[in-house]
Design a protein around this nucleic acid. Sequence first.
DNA 1: CAGTGAGCGAGCTTCCGCTTGACTT
Length: 785
Amino acid sequence: MIENLVIVESPAKAKTIEKFLGEDFIVKSSYGHIRDLAKKNLGIEVDNGYNPQYIIPDEKKNVVKELKKLVKEAKEVWLASDEDREGEAIAWHLMNVLELDKKKTKRIVFHEITKDAIQKAIQNPRPIDENLVNAQQARRILDRLVGFEVSPILWKKVKPSLSAGRVQSVAVKLLVEREREIMNFKSESYFKASGLFKTAKNEELKADLTDKIKSQKDTQAFIELCKSAQFNVKDISKKPGKKSPAPPFTTSTLQQEASRKLGFSVAQTMTVAQKLYESGKITYMRTDSVNLSEMALNSAKNVINKEFGEKYVKIRHFKTKTKGAQEAHEAIRPTFLDKQEVSGSDNEKKLYDLIWKRTIASQMSDAELEKTSIYITISNSEHEFLAIGEVLKFDGFLKVYIESSDDENDEDIKGLLPQVTKGEKLEYNSVQAIQRFTHYPPRYTEASLVKKLEELGIGRPSTYAPTISTIQNRGYVVKEDRPGNERNYTVITLSKGVIKETTKTEITGAEKSKLFPNNIGMVVNDFLEKHFDEIVNYNFTAKVEEEFDEIANGKLEWPKMIDKFYKPFHKTVEKTLETSGKSVGERILGNDPATGKPVSVKIGPYGPMVQLGLKDEDEKPQFASLQKGQMLETITLSEALALFKLPRELGAYENKKVVVSIGRFGPYVRHDAKFVSLKKEDDPYTIELGRAIELINEKREKDSKKTIKTYSEDPDLFVLNGRWGPYISYKKQNYKIPKGTDAAELSYKNCLDIINKDSDSKSIKKEKTGKNSAPKTKSKKPSKK
DNA sequence: CAGTGAGCGAGCTTCCGCTTGACTT
């Protein structure tokens, strides 16, 4: 017989709580939701008051079975899921599925996992809040209606397997809008002048002109003036300043900082954090709260006191600013703040270190600064120079942690300025004006997109990472690096009375790990904006959240709210299905000057493509795929026509055709059924036969050196030299040679050992990945009754 | 990564939020 059964959401939490509660309590986990809408069809009886069809998903059957068994043995059952909308619903589903007596069901909540908090909770049970549950049901049903009615329209009108939803479609829209802003951005140049001066005490003082100068002509004129100008210190001002630490981590801020400081993707951050959580090193990692428990605050105080001294302690209570935050948990922090380091993988150590520093810093004193500004007048000009220096008077929290910023221009490190007096005359060493350019708004990274979604109140801590993955998996968006372009800029320098003008080059616009919308993402976004403006509106979530709140407060009935949304929405769905044509982003670019045939671009069955000619003519139209990075909406007629120039036949070599084209791995030459990649400096559109032959011969020579060893025992076995050094090839499979082995010395038996060892680990890996993708292959089995 | 895609015949795909698991005797 069990005295008490407590059910929480997470197994790691269950373990911790069990310790606090003593022998009379058994604590189990529900592993999140145990019921969901039926997966087939809508799972909602639209004509029957939107009655939801709940089922227990296969992967939850075992959990439910075990809980049912325990409930039968238990005298008392406590539902201790999180104190938020989803948690309340989990408790309600548990009550129903486990057939608990409504009157006797004890619902308890706590925000902190501390002994005190839990024992207090046990003393204050309450009934399940049905209004809050209804708000969750409305949320769930609305999301299902949107997702499962709009996605199939995309299958018909754009491409199969696409998806749309309240959250993901807005994420894509943010990226598409930003990309178009960038496309339309016109960069303007201006000049930034700065001077190096010599003070009376013969020290150097660097100052920047307070305003920009637009044209090169005006800049030249200004520099000319400086030649004969007198420079004086007009004013010196000293102002105290302070900096305060950032609040402790939430899911979103952790993802942002781990991305900036450690280069983690948001998914990676969550995986590593999960490990730390499961091994008891940090508190729960899916949270929107910046709150720390009293126990944690006390512990932080002690640690700071001990490590840095009393001066550095400043206990703070942060308030969340996030829209729609539900604050069911604490902020993300180390479980034991006195543990500065933990064991584990490198990434776990790094992430823990970040969390420790951020948490500790959040309870430390402000940093105190002194900011000095020196204004310098120019006798023959209205312009003014300004030198700014910043001195740290007291480091405070900066001793431990400095928050990073997404702004790449945050480079200025200011230091101490030399002593000058008001009115002092300064000599110039040099005056320099550098041409700069206005920059388009930055592209989103995964983490900065999460930040933006959070600001809009869209998505939850548990869904940020999956949402970012979904929009990439659907092909709406790619995360990648892109090289920049060279750009010239002018530098005008005045030194020793001589003005010099030079042209320099720089690389601009290079992107690293940024999110770029693909053509399909743009087409889908435009389709949704045209037909489902309401859903992709940035305020849609905020609007429905207000109504969910009304439901939670008992002021609105959920079926009414859903009905008010669904009636007009469903009409739009039907109208769109009937009236809208295929939406494939088609653009007519013009006519081919050679044949007079029309040229158009659109999304084809294999991706974005160019079409030359029309379907209904005698001659079939020609097709060619767009290349990576080419956009339907910006490609020009000549760029599109260039795509038909490949494959190009260059001529013959050794009586065999030499053909150049572009494939999956970039531009290549084909000759005698062999492929040779073009070098970076070669252009497939202009390369000539001579150069192609050169490449072919180069490859041949390489190949001749490719075979290191063959074996008489087995003709299928080779030791080869590849791009990544020597490797073993056996029956079309390749195997790594262990480090420190001389490839030329490998015996037949050595090779077989390597092959056998390797295929063992390979088959294990394969099994694993096979299982992860199981839902896809699984669906093949006939499931009809 | 060990190589340079391509036309209907079949049924399937999809949402957002909670949470981790993983099939062998």
